[in-house]
Design a protein around this nucleic acid. Structure first.
Lengths: 181, 181
DNA sequence: TAGGCCATGTAACCGGTTACATGATTAG
DNA sequence: CTAATCATGTAACCGGTTACATGGCCTA
């Protein structure tokens, strides 16, 4: 049950937040490695959750900024979240455009493959850096555990990529053949 | 562009296949680690692809089995696929219910956490085993590269899980507190 | 003064899943 | 005789993205 509802409950179980903040956390913050959610999904989800009594919303006016609606999880919400997490986890979902490109490396010319690898390396490096920052000042043990798990996986990916990029590049179409297409 | 269309083109670029076979490959075969696609998505996609001239369909009658429509990629299809893969890859998508459970381990009682870890370990082990079989008799270099990449990542995950499961279990709510809820 | 951040929300659209409909063959 | 495998397809539904609407404040 990894839908927007559950994500909202998860984030609110760590503390109060507005819809705007939930979106930030789910795309840039600690939760961005599990989920992506847009405004168009979050706001309706929060309204529904409120109508069901799983969260409560309170309007807070701010000086010089638009008013925000701060949501807090209720006991019923906490129970629902706990129950959702209690059943055995579904299989992890992993989707990688890079791996599809790699698998079909023999259809592309070397520049394309090199660029794809460069992009992937850069992406992994920034993600590792960001995870490192989170790990550095992390006071919540569960979050720490998960972040370190993520770091271990990403470091392996990056190391494999760097060590084996030459053999992948070698699979690409020779420029002559590519030019003849 | 990791939609069903692209997946169909990818699979057909390796050889002819029917809709039924494409679904098998995308859920159980070599491609199942990048994608999941159901009949309801594949059949309409293939029909559209055919109407656009990117694939051709040929009806084949079989003795004792229903007739199947075998699709083959055309030159135009190959070009479209190549072009789709030529642009830099989007960020990998990773969704893990297990990591959400782990992050919130302090909300659950130890049995639940233990069961979640067991499920995750079992899932990783079977996936590693299956990937090992694919790697064992794999004649296509691009596929080999990708499979070995996947194996490296999954082995790291599994090792981390096994080495650190005790510390995760320790985060779970003590049974007394859980009972009081 | 232009663009970015804060902040909430709606509506159109889309890609995909689930369930249904159909039917023959084979294995337990 | 039942269940599974082979095989194709449609229709209802749903969850989510994208784009739009609105508007004030702050920074470059």
């Amino acid at each position: 049950m990894m839908n927007v509802r559950t994500i909202c409950l998860a984030i609110l179980s760590f503390g109060e937040a507005s819809g705007y903040e939930i979106r930030k956390l789910s795309t840039e913050g600690d939760f961005s490695y599990f989920v992506y959610a847009s405004f168009g999904a979050i706001y309706p989800a929060l309204n529904k959750l409120e109508s069901e009594g799983l969260v409560t919303g309170r309007l807070e006016t701010q000086a010089g900024k638009p008013a925000k609606k701060i949501y807090a999880i209720t006991d019923a919400g906490r129970a629902a979240f706990r129950e959702a997490l209690a059943q055995p986890p579904a299989r992890d979902i992993f989707r990688s455009e890079f791996l599809l490109i790699a698998m079909c490396a023999d259809l592309q010319n070397p520049q394309v493959i090199r660029r794809a690898i460069d992009t992937q390396v850069a992406q992994l490096e920034t993600e590792i850096e960001q995870l490192g920052l989170i790990a550095a000042d992390c006071d919540h043990p569960g979050t720490c555990w998960v972040v370190n798990y993520g770091l271990a996986c990403m470091r392996t990916s990056l190391a494999y990529l760097k060590e084996n990029r030459a053999s992948l590049e070698a699979l690409a179409m020779p420029p002559a053949a590519a030019a003849a297409e």
